[in-house]
């Protein structure tokens, strides 16, 4: 059948190769002078730096970028909105408030901050989705129960987002301006510089679990983009499925940003780039969103750690790299539209 032109695969493999190359490069670049010869010779210090610092950081960049890109795809597809991003229903602000809380009231150690921001992000999304399903939605589902419409979820998300921002503001006000405030600002800016082996296993596992769910449900995610009553008549349990999918997507995002701090744009840019390359919204677009996200974040992190004498916030580079690339694709006329709107 000629209906699936093989160009999907033709774009998938170069993207995979790009990501692999970026991942390898990121293993080679860093402030500590690692050398392959010494590593292979079993130099203790070299091995330690490589295994506990360099490798976890590269891994987190690849996986984190992949997760942010994939989650961005999920949000843009489910909400049928090219500007949708995981932040929309409060995960970033919840995670920021959680991190600020840990900095102020808990020990402030990296492990506590990570755990607290993870819980903060999940709590915010949980409240938003809970509110949305409690609110009387626009449609009845088959058994006379109500389901949360997109609009309700977005509204609840906005409410929770502002609430979390307010809490964050109050926390910042109570913070000591010379120490805690700086810590909070630093966390919010997002960086992979402090990632260590010890911090990440749990969050990587959560992230992989969430991603697995997203990939398994990819057909349902596409169906969720269909107008609600039509989707329901196509046998999609719209309300429950949407909550599940959004929860999985925010779970992956929360697991990433609780370790790295807020990273902007990847969730927004990667799916656009992927759609412009694949020109549709199915599994290849989802996979490519992840690959592009991973590629962007890895490359951005390489620059963040090597462009200046100090570590720079990684978000600067994610947008500096991503935005021109997106612009190039648009101007090149690779795709005319990927969303009706």
């Amino acid at each position: 059948m000629k209906m699936y032109p093989n160009t999907k695969a033709a774009k998938f493999f170069p993207a995979l190769a790009l990501l692999a190359a970026a991942g390898l490069l990121s293993l080679l670049v860093g402030k500590y002078p690692l050398s392959l010869a010494k590593l292979l010779a079993g130099d203790e210090m070299q091995t330690q730096v490589f295994l506990t610092l360099r490798l976890p950081r590269s891994l987190m960049a690849v996986l984190g970028g992949f997760a942010l890109g994939a989650a961005g795809y999920v949000f843009q597809t489910v909400f049928c909105n090219p500007l949708a991003a995981p932040d929309m229903i409060g995960v970033s602000s919840g995670a920021s408030a959680g991190a600020a809380f840990a900095i102020l009231f808990l020990s402030g150690s990296p492990l506590a901050v990570t755990a607290s921001s993870f819980l903060g992000g999940l709590l915010a999304v949980g409240i938003a989705l809970g509110l949305a399903s409690a609110v009387r939605g626009q449609y009845f589902s088959g058994r006379g129960t109500y389901s949360a419409g997109n609009g309700t979820i977005v509204l609840a998300g906005i409410a929770v987002h502002s609430l979390a921002q307010t809490i964050l503001m109050i926390l910042k006000l109570t913070a000591d301006p010379e120490r805690q405030l700086a810590s909070i600002e630093y966390w919010i800016m997002g960086s992979l510089s402090a990632i260590t082996l010890r911090q990440i296993p749990f969050y990587c596992a959560v992230c992989v679990a969430g991603l697995t769910g997203i990939f398994l449900l990819h057909r349902q995610i596409v169906l969720l983009s269909v107008e609600e009553s039509e989707a329901r008549m196509l046998g999609v349990p719209v309300g429950k499925m949407r909550l599940l999918v959004l929860f999985l997507a925010t779970l992956t995002v929360a697991s990433v940003i609780s370790v790295t701090g807020v990273i902007s744009f990847i969730g927004l840019l990667a799916p656009h780039i992927a759609r412009l390359l694949t020109r549709d919204n199915r599994l290849p677009a989802l996979a490519l969103s992840g690959l592009m996200g991973g590629f962007l974040l890895t490359l951005a992190d390489i620059l963040a750690r090597s462009a200046a004498s100090a570590e720079l916030p990684v978000s600067i580079f994610t947008s500096l790299l991503g935005a021109p690339f997106l612009l190039y694709l648009i101007l090149n006329g690779k795709g005319d539209r990927n969303h009706d709107g």
Binding site: G142, V226, E227, E230, M233, G235, D280, R282, H339, D340
Partner: peptide
């Protein structure tokens, strides 16, 4: 008495215009 999934198997619903809001191949 049917669940929404059973209903979906029995009934095809065709709206005024389809609410497909994203780019997809026709086949999909």
């Amino acid at each position: 008495g049917l669940s929404s999934r059973q209903l979906a198997r029995q009934i095809s619903y065709i709206p005024q215009r389809s609410g497909i809001g994203i780019s997809l191949p026709v086949m999909e």
